[in-house]
């Protein structure tokens, strides 16, 4: 029983912490982000399984985590409000070539992040070439280029 409860608790805590940390956290996946992710997974794994390394416990924990994820996705599909709370909403960052500084700052981004996404996704190198930039719920910045 304890394995199931621990797995549920860890799932909930991770969900909460990553929601609070902001959607850009660990999004860039730099070498350091990767190391951080591995350390987090190691700390999580030990808290979940304790000193029970049995096959049964592993199956229980994995099944619990997957079930929690399926359950949450079903809830999100039925309730847009819950989905908004858990995943956030897209945010417009640039409109008609003009960055919206207050939003960029609150999202812990700057113009360079937007330009970097514009270069990578659309081959654009100037802000004026960007019609709209939107911070998506998964932390990616999508770019709509200015019409020629």
């Amino acid at each position: 029983m304890e394995s199931v409860l621990r797995a549920f608790a860890i799932y909930a805590v991770l969900l909460l912490l990553f929601r609070i940390s902001g959607r850009r956290t660990l999004r860039d996946m730099t070498a350091f982000d990767l190391v951080l992710l591995l350390i987090i997974s190691e700390a999580t794994q030990q808290a979940m399984i304790g000193d029970d390394f049995s096959f049964t416990n592993a199956v229980l924990v994995i099944t619990t985590l997957l079930l929690a994820d399926i359950g949450l996705s079903l809830v999100k599909a039925r309730s847009p409000r819950v989905a908004r709370v858990l995943e956030g909403v897209p945010t417009l960052l640039v409109a008609h070539g003009s960055p919206l500084p207050g939003r960029l700052e609150r999202a812990r981004l700057d113009e360079q992040d937007v330009l970097s996404a514009a270069r990578a996704l659309q081959g654009l190198d100037r802000m004026e070439q960007i019609r709209f930039a939107v911070l998506e719920t998964d932390g990616q910045i999508s770019i709509v280029p200015e019409r020629k």
Partner: peptide, 28 residues
């Protein structure tokens, strides 16, 4: 180069296409 001239303090949703007006409506 970036354009920081006259950054808008607020955005007129009327200047946005319909799909982005929906995004802007969630700003609150």
């Amino acid at each position: 180069m970036t354009s920081r001239s006259n950054p808008p303090s607020s955005l007129d949703p009327g200047t946005l296409p319909p799909e982005l007006r929906h995004v802007e409506a969630l700003l609150g």
